[in-house]
Amino acid sequence: MPERADGSPRWIVRRALKVAVAGALHAAGAHRAVGTLRRRQAGGARVLVVSYHRVTHDYRASAREGLASLLVSADTLRRQLEQLGRTRDLVSLADARRILAEPPGTSRARDVVTVTFDDGYADVHGVALPILRALGAPATAFVVTGLVGTARRLPHDRIYAALAELAARGIPPERAGLPRAPQALLDACARAGPAATLDRLIARLPHPRLLEVADALAARVGLADADLPAGTRV
């Protein structure tokens, strides 16, 4: 559940309205009624899976360096897990699977939540693990084993860094002069910026093609994997 770096007035107003509505419903006990109803409809406890990527002590600084959509601050992670733990049982992924396999009608006092971390960024160990230990919260990390112990970075981090560098130089990707410029890259270019272009590329290209785009962009701007922010290390 990443945070957002968008500080636009419109987004702030929307967020304030959501918080106000949620607070009113919570005060009225709607969350308890809905939880009971859903358990009755499903015939057992619900399993919620919350997924994170990178965890950072300094959200604003990390958001300036890399993909803000993958970030959550250490304080936000702790507060989210504390809140989840007030109304649900924090369980391991293995226990969540076992609960899902229980026969309909199995009685359970509370719903459960399991925590996962995608990609296996190093800060899951350095920043998230102490929080998980302090809260007694099990978690599962999915690690890209081929990158462990190397200086290489994940393709989405490489592409974003290169697109951001092009933007900083005032060069649109379609005018980057890439050798045999991938048509998918040209089609994906978004006025909203590097992050939106990256999202379109991921949605349209298979992994091997993403690697080709990452290599071509990195070569164009002269960006080595080791030049990327330390927080992108796996």
Rank of each mutant, 00 (worst) to 15 (best):
L198H: 01
H57V: 09
T140W: 07
A195M: 00
L100M: 11
T140E: 03
A74Q: 10
R86F: 07
D225W: 09
A68S: 13
V144S: 11
A68H: 06
H156E: 14
A101H: 08
A27R: 14
A167I: 06
G29C: 02
L217A: 07
S62R: 14
V13R: 15
D225Q: 04
V115L: 13
D187Y: 11
T197W: 06
A61H: 10
A74H: 05
R38H: 10
T145Q: 00
P104A: 08
A61R: 12
V124C: 09
L77I: 03
T114N: 07
G177D: 08
R204P: 02
A96V: 01
R152T: 10
L17M: 15
A216V: 03
D123S: 12
R169K: 09
E3D: 11
D58G: 05
L135Y: 03
C189M: 15
S73F: 09
P9G: 02
Q183V: 01
A42H: 13
A139Y: 02
A122Y: 00
D199N: 14
A219H: 11
D6K: 04
P9H: 07
A42S: 12
A230L: 13
T76L: 14
G126V: 10
A16Q: 13
L17H: 15
S51V: 14
A164I: 06
L186Y: 11
G177H: 05
L48I: 05
A63P: 02
P206W: 09
V50P: 00
R64H: 11
R110K: 12
E174R: 11
F142G: 01
L166R: 04
L84V: 04
L70F: 12
V49M: 09
T106Y: 06
L70N: 03
V34K: 08
A30Q: 08
R40W: 14
I159D: 03
G136R: 06
S51Y: 06
H156I: 07
K18V: 12
R169N: 03
Y160C: 07
L166N: 02
R88W: 09
L77F: 09
P2N: 14
I99P: 04
I12Q: 15
G126P: 05
V13F: 14
A216F: 06
L185Q: 06
T197D: 04
A190S: 15
R79N: 12
R133F: 12
V55W: 05
Q83T: 11
I12L: 15
S92M: 08
G136V: 04
R200Y: 07
R88V: 02
L147H: 04
A109D: 14
R32V: 01
L135P: 01
L228K: 03
E212D: 15
R39E: 08
V47Y: 02
V34I: 15
Q183N: 00
P206Y: 11
T116V: 13
A167T: 09
D215K: 07
S62K: 09
V113Y: 05
P179W: 03
A24W: 12
